[in-house]
Amino acid sequence: MNLVSSHIPAGWAVALWLLLAGLFVVMWRQAAWRVLKAPGNLNVLLGATVALLGLWLIKAGVRPGLNIHLLGATALTLMFRPWFAILAMALVIAGLTVHNGQYAAYPANVLMMGVLPVSISWAIYRLVDRKLPNHVFIYIFLNCFFGAGITIALVGIASTLMAGALGIYSFNYLLENYLPFYLLMAWAEAFATGMVMTLLVVYKPEWVATFDDHRYLVSK
């Protein structure tokens, strides 16, 4: 879902901008900005952001505001942890917003397509990290493959509920012509994320902040 400005009720616009501004303030205070000073880290973050922007441009449009595309949020969360993942998603959505001019819809899109999937991905990672053994296959299949699939499925459900609650489209239309296709994207999202993260933990583990060779490989 990529909401357009006409979909945002006037009473919601100010509240959404204030909520997003508050989130950015918390990000400014909580994010470990010092890690970007390490050689290459900023380049990796910006490179991943540009790559994700290109991925989001490959999309299918059902109706205005009902675009379907891969998210990439789980991969960013595992690579950079939540605050920098949200920052990257916000930059991607900002680029698309400048391109299409739907500025009033920016905070809603960031919250729905950025903050929500990153939060779900991080919650899955934290749950797996606490409850299950540290093993590379558990990391790949649960955090990357399963995590990405369940994340995009839940975002699709949340997007459907939001669009229906706002009266953008009827629930019947959304359940027949939008949600099923979004749920089908779960397999593609899971496969793509699992493949990319597998390559990264093998060849560039230093790019994956949540992966530690000693925990997942050496100690085994």
Results as ranks from 00 to 15, higher is better:
Gly156Asp: 03
Leu217Val: 15
Leu70Met: 06
Met162Val: 08
Ala186Tyr: 05
Leu57Ile: 12
Leu87Pro: 13
Ala94Tyr: 12
Leu3Lys: 00
Leu55Phe: 12
Leu36Cys: 03
Thr193Ala: 04
Asp212Gln: 06
Val110Tyr: 02
Pro117Phe: 01
Leu142Phe: 07
Leu142Thr: 00
Val4Phe: 09
Tyr203Val: 12
Ala32Leu: 12
Pro180Gln: 02
Ile138Lys: 07
Trp12His: 09
Arg215Gly: 07
Asp129Lys: 14
Ala192Phe: 14
Ile152Pro: 09
Ala148Met: 10
Ala123His: 13
Glu189Cys: 10
Ser170Cys: 06
Tyr216Lys: 04
Phe80His: 04
Leu199Ala: 09
Asn109Pro: 04
Phe171Gly: 01
Pro39Trp: 00
Ala13Ser: 15
Leu199His: 12
Leu175Ser: 09
Leu57Pro: 06
Met197Trp: 07
Thr210Met: 12
Thr49Asn: 07
Ile58His: 06
Leu161Val: 04
Ser5Tyr: 13
Thr77Lys: 07
Val44Asp: 11
Ile93Pro: 01
Val136Met: 15
Ile68Asp: 10
Phe24Thr: 11
Phe146Glu: 02
Pro107Lys: 13
Phe84His: 04
Arg34Leu: 13
Trp17Tyr: 04
Glu206Asn: 13
Gln30Ala: 15
Ala188Gln: 13
Leu46Asn: 04
Lys204Thr: 07
Trp28Ala: 15
Leu55Cys: 09
Ile157Arg: 05
Trp122Val: 06
Val110Arg: 10
Lys131Arg: 15
Ala188Arg: 13
Lys204Gly: 06
Met185Phe: 15
Trp33Cys: 05
Ala31Tyr: 14
Ala94Val: 07
